[in-house]
């Protein structure tokens, strides 16, 4: 896979992919995390994280990147116990879970896939299709002689 991330090194991307595959190994119809190529969009998932959260995530992913795959799976299994555990270990595992699961889940169910992937996206497999009808408001705004309305008016003149 071509390395496209500007924020993560290839070792960190490897770590992210291992975690992604532990959470989303695929089930025949649903592709695995690595197969669907969503990791190509990793930067969009993390670029707005607060700087210290991003730094911790990068360190963690770097470490997972050099671990064997089964260690990543064991880490994920352990993290999933976090919500039911008390004490400092529970706190640590819950942070781990929210951090790791958060990023890979956002990517996997983003509807965005890798440029080489040809199969259905996980969202398509679920049958998730949503829309909002806008033809009438688009037409109204296009015809309006009084200038734009609503949110467009609020943002008018802003860079």
């Amino acid at each position: 896979m071509k390395h496209t991330s500007k924020l993560l090194s290839s070792t960190q991307i490897r770590g992210l992919t291992k975690v992604g595959d532990a959470y989303f190994p695929g089930d025949g119809e649903l592709p695995s995390f690595s197969r669907c190529g969503c990791v190509e969009h990793a930067d969009a998932a993390i670029e707005l994280l607060p700087a210290d959260d991003l730094a911790s995530l990068k360190t963690l992913l770097g470490a997972i990147g050099i671990m064997p795959g089964f260690v990543a799976t064991s880490l994920v299994r352990l993290a999933e116990h976090g919500p039911r555990m008390n004490g400092p270990l529970g706190v640590g595992l819950r942070f781990l879970r929210l951090g790791l699961k958060g990023v890979v889940t956002s990517l996997y169910y983003s509807g965005e896939v890798g440029h080489n992937y040809k199969g259905p996206t996980p969202l398509e497999v679920l049958g998730y299709h949503v829309k909002v009808y806008t033809a009438d408001v688009d037409e109204r705004d296009a015809k309006s002689t009084q200038g734009p309305s609503g949110s467009i008016a609020a943002c008018r003149g802003l860079k």
């Binding site: 532990a22 959470y23 190994p25 695929g26 089930d27 649903l30 799976t73 999933e80 679920l126």
Partner: peptide, 12 residues
């Protein structure tokens, strides 16, 4: 909750 195939089962 969960991960892996069990999580896939729920999401399906």
């Amino acid at each position: 909750p969960g991960f892996g195939r069990e999580h896939h089962r729920l999401m399906r």
